[in-house]
Design a protein around this nucleic acid. Sequence first.
RNA 1: UCCUCAGUAGCUCAAUGGCAGAGCACUCGGCUGUUAACCGAGGGGUUACUGGUUCGAGUCCAGUCUGGGGAGCCA
Length: 467
Amino acid sequence: MKDINTTTVKQIYRQPQEYFNKRLTLAGWIRSNRDSKAFGFIELNDGSFFKNIQIVFEEEKLDNFKEVTKLGVGNAIIVDGILVETPNAKQPFEIKAESIQVEGYCPSEYPLQKKRHSFEFLRTIAHLRPRTNTFSAVFRVRSILAYAIHKFFQERDFVYVHTPIITGSDCEGAGEMFRVTTLDWNNLTRNDKGEIDFSDDFFGRETNLTVSGQLSAEAYAMAFRNVYTFGPTFRAENSNTPRHAAEFWMIEPEMAFADLYDDMALAEDMIKYIFSYVLEHAPEEMEFFNKFIDQGLLDRLNNVINSEFAHVTYTEAVELLKKNNDNFDYKVEWGTDLQTEHERYLTEHVYKKPVFVTDYPKEIKAFYMRLNDDGKTVAAMDLLVPGIGEIIGGSQREERLEILDQRIRELGMKEEDYWWYRDLRKYGGTRHAGFGLGFERAIMYLTGMSNIRDVIPFPRTPKSAEF
RNA sequence: UCCUCAGUAGCUCAAUGGCAGAGCACUCGGCUGUUAACCGAGGGGUUACUGGUUCGAGUCCAGUCUGGGGAGCCA
């Protein structure tokens, strides 16, 4: 097959003067086709760029003019033509076609139309929705954001650690897990108590998909000092909300010789860096979101980037929120977790910018968070941002083995299940801290998309794994 | 898992318990610069599924399935 030496639409938009009045070959898909008696216009998208380019075709130039007028949305074509400036038209330039060849026909029952579709409908055709404007923008931003995250950490000499996806640890403690097994469930071996015998299983023990890479990351932080994970995470919770999926990605940095303040400084730097990076590298997409998805988007993101994040302790926050208790569905009281309505009130009305809430009661936080001197609170932090509430949760970890053991016992857990995690404290353990950022939550915040199912290519949610 | 709303043409939606409709899309025709092009004509339906009430059900009732939103859980 002959190579197609094509110019991309992105190249043309970025440096049009390089291509004016030259003959180019473009390859792409028809987004719209309007024809008159002797000429017509095709909106072509070649995948390289968010925007389309207009192709003008004329009867006297094309021997297959009649065929081209019949090509509807979705047809894949190869276009030869001259790029010309169109200073008086809506678009800055267009291609005057010399030839148009069909690469792949698209019949008229193609489900995508020129007009707007509901996101609900597009979820039922998840294999075709990347061809729409919104999803083209969402998934290009997803890619750029992933790169920005790596770039941020790599520039600061953090080591990227691939923590396991299959875990033998049943004590990650963040919700229901998916079991991984090769056992034949029609023929299970059971012991005399009727329990399944996992010694016959592939790994010789019960294994699951990971719900967090944090415990493994702590081990690597004790060797490399600053590390981060960025990978898939699985939760078998029956959560039916626009913010939860069974398979999602998380970013979890972990730093040795660092306390809660170092942790918060890192989180603030990271958020500002990755948001700025996407705004700079996907301007067309971000403008589209601001116009069609969420009209306050750019103002909100710029406010995050340009403000100094606020800090408040949980105890202080509770006092602030109590003054407004009449307006909350759930009344605030010291010792209870903050609801989304409380978080949003703090960040949107009290501070009007991102705010770290720190030092939560130990009862509502995980066992590994470092106990404060008051004996009642732990060195935890949540970053709340206007628009959604919590976007990051982190903590300084408990590095003192005797106190960690005490917490493990208080919560009815078994020390031996955490033997290697406890070793990290035994052998040269240092103060250390880290946090978790839900990758999809960050994409949602950046794009204004309100459903997590619309920022994952093929989302997995309860009762849904069609693709 | 709980609460709540919805399911009618390919899509987005109408239709008081009384003949199943529109716009867009699609097919055909027209139009010499369109921009969600425009103008004319045409085809297109197991009203999610099962049962019930009724002379008569898209509409009322019960159950099931699927989807949206809220809650819980959390990222």
